[in-house]
Design a protein around this nucleic acid. Structure first.
Length: 874
RNA sequence: GGGCUCAUAGCUCAGUUGGUUAGAGCGUUUCCUUGACAUGGAAAAGGUCGGUGGUUCGAGUCCACUUGAGCCCACCA
């Protein structure tokens, strides 16, 4: 290794190791009764997906969990797969055939679906390849697709079973309709966004007295063509006498009634509202209640239809303008007031949703939601961070029925059949030969397919191919996903798991933040602010990407990302690489064989080695705890700090002078080797690469176990003492800088430490003071030893003296000391006040009081020493 | 209209059960090309934790109100 380059090169190593792991089947998991299962099902990416930072974060977290548990000794399965993504995929393939001048109708249903499968074969696994670049240790042999034959069977089975239970029904309702995709959408698929629009005030003349008008306000004037009433609040005095009267709908001259309903808010607009039952959910309810006519005025593509009179064939927004013009001409446009409104948008193509009356299939959600609410309330499923459980419960408690039919071709076709002669509806797992009612074989299947989420909600169990696997790995352990997926997927999986497996689908739900750019904007292609993970991998390496991403992801907080962040990860990988190089080039292979636990004997091992071992075990103990609590950033930052600043900056520097000593050899090797194992879940590639270069090591690091915590090695006293030593060295270095002594020049140093323990400790470790602070003649006194004209500093109850005067600016230094004295005096004053407070003495825990007392003593000591320094300066 | 999150060093952010010299990375300043690493080392400067009030012996850390930023949900036409 020592002959290798100074810079770590992830490019040359990462792909190689991934291939090695795959070829050696190291990702595979299978039921093993002697082990605990740990299971994660991947949120299946769309086959149209291309890896973005959200995926990178999501999958890095899962991979950390999986690798951590695998090395903990659990039978760890990361179940991979992809989602057929009905609308998204259909859109992509439609675009692709459009290049040949074709529409899907030109091909016909079967040919089109064939084309989708061809597309899927060619591009559908792009995202999988990219997940592999990320280092994801999924059991790829188990990979699932939501349109796999068996999976599809399960989807159909679930539909039929829910239908048989009376939980699926068909009906004419107002649904969210995307005119561009030309399909119904669920409420979740039509998120509302604010829109700057207008409130248009229209005048509807009374039939009896056309000079008199009722003014209605609307944001969508084109829907007036479908009006079948005007509604007012029954208590509204302004309109009381008009209730029951007839209006003439302008432009179409249709007669409509004025009705009264308490649903109308008298304070909004004019207090009179036009009622369009076929184009608005509220109006739909009014229409049902008051038995109004349902007039659909649009084609599925949102052009006006035959019910729209002269406006037929105009697009809805074009019609809006023309209608307003015409009304204005007739003097029936009262006014236009700017008005902010929110409208549903298609989550696939962002087209404004049209509330549209149509026949669709729905799932009754209330009965399914009930047990799903219970399991979260009872803590059987826990959200991390816990606040998301509130969001979940709030949604579940107000759940609406789920529209599951989609008017597209790519997806699971609804298993409903219609008998043409007798109109019988047959819901069946397989196509019936003949109608059970009339015996006819003139049967056709429902044209619609199911919502993609109607297949993904079965993911945690439908992915398992055998009963044994299902029994062993289900319920899964942790689900890792983003907040916007809670309603779409998490909630529904909980419902389906309870309904079809009678068990929760997972125990923990870890909700991570959204990846945003530095300005806090969501990363998206349209904004052009994306950072491509693959580019980062190419430039900095996968380990760097993973490290940086994780180190800034506090539990549940959004991630603000700029490209520079990845430098830290790259630098850390390089640091590990070089520290390893250093160790390996100094390591005698025979020293790699010792068993650390046998070797470790307090009495025999020197302080420095005891210290670093203690720090190592303290660190991993804390890291494991943090990982178990899903605090990934804290865990990795802890490991980072340990390795870089304690192991490299202090430990390796201290033992450098005596690197061939057996104890040093054994300890530095053991810590490196063990550290790599702890690091592996976070940075799988470099940990494997270095591990493989260690002498006497064979086999993958993936097959190793995490180092066990050796409690008996943790020694807080030594850790504290060593902290003092470091402070001492730092203070001396500081003095040298103050004196502008060149780094390579050696100086003499006197330390006056009156405290016996401290004195003895410094004596014991004086070699390190000499080496790390470049000291030539070192003397340790127990008495005050600061002579006039010498340069001195104070550390706790010690005086540090460099007998080399004249170089410093005495006045400047005096001033600095005076400031410190002032600060110390003020600290003392505060402490005295605190300790003088009877309530504090009485109520604070004794150990805190004791600690404060100690601090006061120390401060007094420091004050004395500082005064001595000033005095010494003359 | 309801709910949630955030506001801590120049920048980006940590800070689990309230304990008192508030941390990191990046950036800045000074010095160092010393055989592991300049994707490096040493040292330094820099916050009193958005505001107000409260609880407490003690609050960045709990409560109320408030200001600003952002997100989610909701059938205001």
């Amino acid at each position: 290794m020592s002959d290798l380059v100074k810079l770590y090169s992830p490019k040359e190593t990462e792909d190689r190791w991934y291939k090695f792991w795959e070829e050696n089947n190291l990702f595979a998991a299978s039921p093993n009764p002697s082990k605990k299962p740990f299971t994660i099902v991947i949120p299946p990416p769309n086959i149209t997906g291309i890896l973005h930072m959200g995926h990178a974060l999501n999958n890095t977290i899962q991979d950390i969990l999986i690798r951590y548990h695998r090395m903990k000794g659990d039978e760890s399965l990361w179940m991979p797969g992809t989602d057929h993504a009905g609308i998204a995929t259909q859109n992509v393939v439609e675009k692709s055939i459009a290049k040949e001048g074709l529409k899907r109708e030109d091909l016909g249903r079967d040919k089109f679906i064939q084309r989708v499968w061809v597309w899927k074969e060619e591009y559908g696994s792009t995202i999988i390849r990219q997940l592999k670049k990320l280092g994801s240790s999924c059991d790829w042999q188990r990979i699932r697709f939501t349109m796999d034959e068996e999976y599809s069977k399960c989807v159909i089975d679930v539909f039929v079973s829910l239908y048989e239970k009376g939980l699926i029904y068909q009906g004419d309702y107002i649904i969210n309709w995307c005119p561009r995709c030309q399909t119904a959408l669920s409420d979740e698929e039509a998120p509302h966004h604010e829109l700057q629009g207008n409130l248009y005030y229209l005048r509807y003349p009374l039939k009896d007295n056309p000079q008199d008008v009722v003014i209605v306000a609307t944001t969508r004037p084109e829907t007036m063509l479908g009006d079948s009433a005007v509604a007012v609040n029954p208590k509204d005095k302004r309109y009381k006498k008009l209730i029951g009267k007839t209006l003439v709908l302008p432009l179409l001259n249709r007669e409509i009634k004025i009705i009264a309903d308490p649903m109308v808010d008298a304070k909004f607009g004019t207090g009179a509202v036009k009622v369009t039952p076929a184009h608005d959910p509220n109006d739909y309810a009014l229409g049902k209640k008051h038995n109004l006519e349902f007039i659909n005025v649009m084609y599925p593509d949102a052009r006006m239809n035959q019910n729209a009179g002269d406006y037929k064939d105009m697009d809805r927004f074009e019609a809006r303008e023309v209608i307003l013009e015409d009304l204005k001409e007739k003097g029936l446009l009262e006014k236009i007031v700017p008005h902010e409104l929110s409208a549903g948008h298609c989550y696939r193509c962002h087209t404004i949703i049209e509330p549209y009356l149509s026949k669709q299939w729905f799932v009754k959600m209330k009965p399914l939601a009930k047990p799903a609410i219970e399991v979260v309330k009872k803590g059987k499923i826990k959200f991390y961070p816990s606040r998301w459980s509130k969001v979940y419960l709030n949604w579940m408690e107000n759940i609406q029925d789920w529209c599951i039919s989609r008017q597209i071709w790519w997806g699971h076709r609804i298993p409903v059949y219609y008998c043409k002669p007798c109109k019988q509806i047959i819901v069946s797992r397989a196509k019936p030969e003949k109608c059970p009612s009339c015996g006819s074989n003139d049967i056709c299947q429902d044209e619609d397919v199911l919502d993609t989420w109607f297949s993904s909600w079965l993911w945690p169990f439908a992915t398992f191919r055998s009963k044994e696997d299902l029994k062993y790995f289900y319920p899964t352990s942790t689900l890792v996903t983003a907040p916007e997926i809670i309603f779409f997927w998490v909630a529904r999986m909980i419902m389906s798991g309870l309904e079809f497996q009678k068990q929760i689908p997972f125990k923990d739900v870890y909700i991570h933040g959204t990846v945003r750019d530095v300005e806090g904007k969501k990363m998206s292609k349209s904004l052009g602010n994306v950072i491509d993970p693959l580019e980062i991998i190419n430039e900095y390496g996968t380990d760097a990407l993973r490290f940086s991403l994780i180190s800034i992801t506090a539990q549940g907080q959004d991630v603000f990302l700029s490209k520079e962040r990845f430098e830290q990860g790259r630098n850390f990988a390089n640091k590990i690489w070089n520290a390893s190089r250093f160790i390996l080039m100094n390591l005698e292979p025979e020293n790699t064989k010792a068993d650390l636990c046998v070797f470790f004997k307090k009495e025999e091992l020197d302080t420095v080695n005891r210290w670093i071992l203690s720090r190592f075990y303290s660190t991993i103990k804390q890291a494991y705890k943090l990982l178990d609590g899903y605090r990934f950033n804290e865990a990795i930052n802890l490991l980072y700090h340990f390795f870089w600043h304690e192991f490299c900056d202090w430990y390796l520097e201290m033992i450098k002078a005596d690197i061939k000593k057996t104890h040093n050899q054994i300890v530095m090797y053991k810590i490196l080797e063990k550290f790599l194992r702890v690091l592996h879940p976070f940075m799988p590639f470099i940990s494997e690469e270095v591990k493989q270069k260690l002498p006497g090591q064979s086999g993958s690091i993936m097959a190793e176990r995490l180092p066990l915590i050796q409690e008996q090695i943790i020694d807080k006293k030594i850790e504290k003492k060593m902290a003092l030593l470091f402070e001492l060295i730092t203070t001396i270095r500081n003095m040298r800088a103050e004196l502008e002594i060149p780094p390579q020049a050696q100086v003499d140093l006197k330390i006056c430490a009156s405290d016996k323990t401290t004195n003895a400790f410094i004596k014991l470790l004086s070699v390190h003071v000499r080496n790390l602070a470049k000291i030539k003649n070192f003397t340790l006194e127990s008495e005050y030893c600061h002579a006039a004209g010498e340069f001195a500093a104070v550390l706790k109850d010690m005086h540090l003296v460099i007998p080399l005067a004249g170089l410093i600016d005495i006045e400047k230094y005096k001033q600095k000391m005076t400031e410190r004295i002032k600060k110390t005096e003020s600290d003392i004053k505060n402490k005295k006040t605190m300790l003088g407070n009877a309530d504090f003495i009485k109520r604070a825990p004794a150990q805190i009081v004791e600690k404060e007392k100690q601090k006061l003593l120390e401060l007094n000591e420091i004050l004395n020493k500082l005064k001595g320094v000033i005095h010494g300066l003359g």
